[in-house]
């Protein structure tokens, strides 16, 4: 390299850094640093208040979590919620994506409709479903009455046994669009020739679905189910508005539990510890899932 070229390269690099700095600096200060500090807080006894001494307590928080019944309950509910929503969402979204991939009439309209839940803020989705579940003025109870099943009328969000399923249904509704759109994109990426070749060879629709569509769609499926699971496990706003964790803690997701610990009781360290546990659990579950899928793909 000549000296001139080298000088140019150096000035280029300076320009690049100057251009990137205004974006990188805030991300560093308000995203990377807080996250590292948050992880550290999980090993301290930090509490709310301006002049409270914070000291490093090692794994004390985690020992306390292990014997905290409320944590275990939140953890269990979180897993039921995250798995329930992710799996049902995926099945329903796959069905819808397959339909939208067919040459049906009203397909354009249906595609727009499929996007609507996505366009709504979680808080509004929560409010809307409260209207649907409302024991007196709600749509669901009225439909049951009209359908002659008055005995099934319920205080859906207020009853111990129905609160969690009711909330899961809303979770499915709210998250279906992303999953559907991604799967639809994946379906459209499956080469048509493969389908035609399989049809020529006499494969039935079901056989084509199993041996052409599914294998080609697999990478997309793995990506979107993983992301859905992470988002669901960490979700907050929707259930906060629907039930705020009630009745009797029946819908107390881990995030709601952590929020209460941190901002109602001021136990910052404990809440951060809970956050750390959630990260570890998610990473562990994803690792198992991805390894199994990869092994299947290679088998």
């Amino acid at each position: 390299m000549t000296t001139v070229a080298r000088a140019r390269a150096r000035s280029d690099r300076t320009t690049v850094y100057l251009l990137l700095l205004p974006a990188l600096l805030p991300v560093l200060v308000l995203s990377v640093v807080p996250l590292l500090r948050g992880i550290y807080l999980g090993f301290t006894d930090a509490r709310a208040g301006r002049d409270v001494d914070t000291s490093f307590t090692g794994i004390d928080n985690y020992r306390e979590l292990l014997s905290d019944d409320l944590f275990w309950s939140a953890f269990r509910i979180g897993l039921v919620w995250a798995f329930g929503v992710t799996i049902l969402q995926f099945v329903l979204a796959l069905g819808l994506a397959l339909l939208l991939d067919q040459p049906l009439r009203f397909r354009g309209f249906a595609r727009v409709m499929a996007l609507v839940p996505w366009a709504m803020p979680p808080v509004i989705v929560g409010i809307m479903w409260r209207l649907v579940y409302h024991p007196d003025a709600g749509l669901l109870n009225e439909m049951l009455y009209r359908g002659g099943a008055e005995g099934l009328r319920h205080n859906w969000l207020g009853d111990f046994s129905t609160a969690l399923p009711a909330v899961i249904l809303v979770g499915i509704w709210a998250g279906m669009p992303q999953t559907t759109i991604v799967l639809l994109a994946g379906l459209q990426g499956v080469p048509r020739e493969l389908h035609e070749a399989a049809a020529v060879d006499g494969a039935s629709a079901w056989q084509r679905f199993r041996s052409v569509t599914i294998p080609n769609l697999m990478p997309v499926v793995i990506a979107i189910t993983s992301l859905d699971f992470i988002w669901n496990f960490n979700s907050f706003g929707l259930v906060y508005v629907l039930t705020a964790g009630g009745p009797g803690g029946r819908t107390m997701l881990p995030m709601l539990f952590a929020y209460e610990e941190a901002f109602r009781y001021g136990n910052y360290g404990y809440a951060a510890a809970l956050g750390n546990v959630m990260v570890v659990i998610i990473v562990a579950l994803l690792a198992v899932y991805l390894r199994r899928r990869l092994r299947e793909a290679n088998a």
Binding site: I39, G42, A258, A271, V279, I282
Partner: peptide, 13 residues
């Protein structure tokens, strides 16, 4: 950053 729950971020913030 998608992996980390907001609670981990919001307390230090």
């Amino acid at each position: 950053s998608q992996l980390f729950p907001f609670v981990l971020l919001v307390i230090p913030l």
